[in-house]
Design a protein around this nucleic acid. Structure first.
Lengths: 259, 259
DNA sequence: CAGTGGTCTAGACCACCAA
DNA sequence: TGGTGGTCTAGACCACTGG
């Protein structure tokens, strides 16, 4: 009695509930029906309902507390890290027209940082790509990415004006499963300034991203620099869900080595 | 046969597994035992094992794929948004000595943005607080926070040099359950420059944060400005877990069609 | 005190991966 | 083809919230 063929039941349920919530059926600050009631009305077990609700909770759509029905949170949901893995998808979901072109591309040896991030032996060959990304024709981001050998070969073969590298990669069977993002601030160098049309030394929002495939093997290591004012990164977190992480003993955490 | 008294079984299990992974028992890129095996060896049901593993997965500690055992991802996991809700906790977990002091504090009417964020009627009275945050004595962040009436009263009564407002609030029974964070970039104004000891117009990393209690009622709305180079925000996401969000029908989202 | 979400179990079938 | 994770069920007890 398992359904995995198409979309999982709990995902369908989540979608249905999400739609209800966003359309204001329950009102902001309103309460959802009980799990029992949802299970009955949708003809599934309570376990499935809970799986669906866990999704909505992670998205920040509803709260959850023992003893009380779930409460509807705000709805804004502008743009969160969920979409971040692909510039193109992110742009489209905002209703903007994404563009992009490869400005430079070459094979070279990985520097120590790149090798470590891609989990490659030092000096391994990697494909380095410099891209300019635009929204509605306006330059907004400079992207410097390195790909390990196998993936690099696929990227190299793509047309230089390919809008979505991610989608092309997926079409070739490369699955992107996990990503780590780090956001900080940096200053525009001469190239950035020229490409983005800003002053040299102008502050830029920087994102480092490492993406892995389902096996955990790194597929991409990228540094993206956004012009000020063009993006804001959003995250939602439920403290309950992450409380544990804070209670842990430091265990095997050396010094505070960070990047 | 449910255990909720102390820590849930699955959280203990998660902690144990996390410790194992971090101590390198399985090796980076190594494989975890099967769910069945873990269930047997820890004397719990498979369901409980899966709950534990879901935590580790969300933290980016392990992958998961149908058909194969889970794979250990990298271990860095230094500082992520999980800790972000409290500057103090974040600092401590880095091994740094957090400090802070209230520089200004007054009741005033909420401006339109604040009212909207705190979900209050326009012009409602709120407590506005300006704090300087330090790490090891060095100023790193300027925090401007507004609190709605009830919480504000508690904050007002705190000693001006209280290190952790969050902890004091929790001690008073105010539970912080959910938070939305937005990160972007801004420039230092005269006050920022003076307080942080940087040049006016110097670029700063800015975080907007709205925190709610378990009921979904906003408790705090804050704008924090970090000196460049003092922080980096980190997030991990599993695409599998968020794939649905991208596949959704536009349902009831006004303009800008979603995909 | 009744209702509700949190935790846990035992068992089932399926889809997918690797051998 | 066998092992593994993904999904689903049915039922149970508990902790907490609220009237």
């Amino acid at each position: 009695m398992a359904n995995t063929q198409r979309t999982a039941r709990y995902r369908e349920l989540a979608a249905a509930l999400r739609a209800d919530v966003l359309s204001g059926v329950y009102g902001e600050g309103g309460r959802l029906p009980s799990e029992e009631a949802l299970a009955a009305s949708h003809g599934v077990s309570r376990g499935t309902v809970r799986q669906a609700l866990a999704l909505l909770r992670a998205e920040g759509v509803v709260t959850s507390r023992r003893g009380t029905r779930r409460v509807v949170l705000e709805q804004p949901r502008v743009q969160s890290f969920a979409e971040l893995s692909s510039f193109t998808r992110w742009a489209r979901s905002l209703g903007e027209e994404p563009g992009g072109s490869v400005l430079e591309l070459r094979w070279r040896e990985a520097d120590p940082v790149e090798a470590e991030r891609l989990r490659l032996p030092a000096g391994e060959r990697v494909l380095w790509v410099l891209r300019l990304r635009t929204l509605g024709g306006e330059p907004v981001m400079v992207e410097r990415t390195v790909y390990p050998e196998p993936v690099g070969a696929l990227v190299e073969a793509m047309p230089p004006d390919a809008v979505s590298v991610t989608e092309l990669l997926e079409a070739q069977g490369v699955v992107l499963a996990d990503a780590d993002h780090t956001v900080d601030l940096t200053l525009a160098d001469a190239d950035d300034a020229r490409l983005l049309g800003c002053a040299p030394e102008a502050p830029l929002l920087r994102e480092h991203r490492r993406t892995s495939d389902p096996t955990g093997v790194p597929v991409e290591w990228s540094e993206d620099r956004y012009r000020a004012g063009t993006v804001a990164f959003t995250v939602h977190n439920s403290l309950a869900a992450t409380a544990l992480a804070r209670t842990l003993p430091s265990s095997a955490r050396g010094v505070s080595r960070q990047e």
